[in-house]
Amino acid sequence: MTPALIYGLTGIVVFGIGLFGALCVRDRLRRLLALNLCGMGAAFVLVAGAWRMPPDSADPVPHALVITGIVVLVSATAVALALIRRLHTLESAPEEIPEDTPE
């Protein structure tokens, strides 16, 4: 029993919860949150895989990958949130919905 095993399994469960939420939740904000949970789950697996029994220090490459992954996920989240805000504004004011105009 090591921390890597415990947190790796934690990450897999979180991934499963996020997957379920992404498939079954209808509310947009909540679904986006579920996708973020998925991402955290994947990050857990990488960080757990990088862990080494002390006194060895952890493998830095997966750490760098996870940092990259976090930034990428935030970027995608920001775009999705902008879409959610815009859609909400348009849907709350039905009379102002622009026509599906030809390009």
Binding site: P3, A4, Y7, L29, L33, N36, M40, A43, V47, A48, A50, W51, R52, P54, S57, A58, H63, A64, V66, I67, I70, V71, L73, V74, T77, A78, L81
Partner: peptide, 22 residues
Amino acid sequence: LAAPDVALAEAAIGTGVTGALL
């Protein structure tokens, strides 16, 4: 899990920025 860089990034960006955006 001996990943302080990742923890810092998660706290600052994954949690801080995402939370602010939400």
